[in-house]
Amino acid sequence: MAEESKKNDEEDIRILAFLCNWCSYAGADLAGVSRFQYPPNVLDVRVMCTGTISPYFVIKAFQEGMDGVLIAGCHIGDCHYLKGNYMTAKRFQVLREALKFLGLEEGRLRLEWVSAAEGEKYADVIRSFTEEVKALGPSPLRGKKAAKAEVGA
């Protein structure tokens, strides 16, 4: 498996998606149930609410060499916890600008509101985000830890 994956390292875009349990994770579920096909280079982390996504999580993801990070949550007004996504919207604004100032391409971080009924939107988001990140190429922060030995791997 390791040999195979390495050959198209340049092509292989790595995206990490943080999905809120109630809307976007459910939207991703619906994309699955509906068999909407999308690129396989996204791994997702389920959280209860996007409000719990600390900017540190995003920094960590980029630090670890992710080429793109997606945050997806309930539409404003739909939050299962009433207002958790308000904070997401605010924190995102700051985070995006900060990364931009440091020189990480803006397109590598995305915030989307995806409801539990928007299976197609979720698939679309993954498709378009993958395209966008692919166009940017592997993250300039990638490869920093590549040499590090992986415990047990």
Partner: peptide, 30 residues
Amino acid sequence: IMEDKLEYRAGGSVEEKNPLSFLGTEHDIE
């Protein structure tokens, strides 16, 4: 960035609240 996006600058008046420290209204987010 904070001032541009969230209309807040630290150290101003005592009354002003940091938007990252309260939830706010749907209107703010819209």
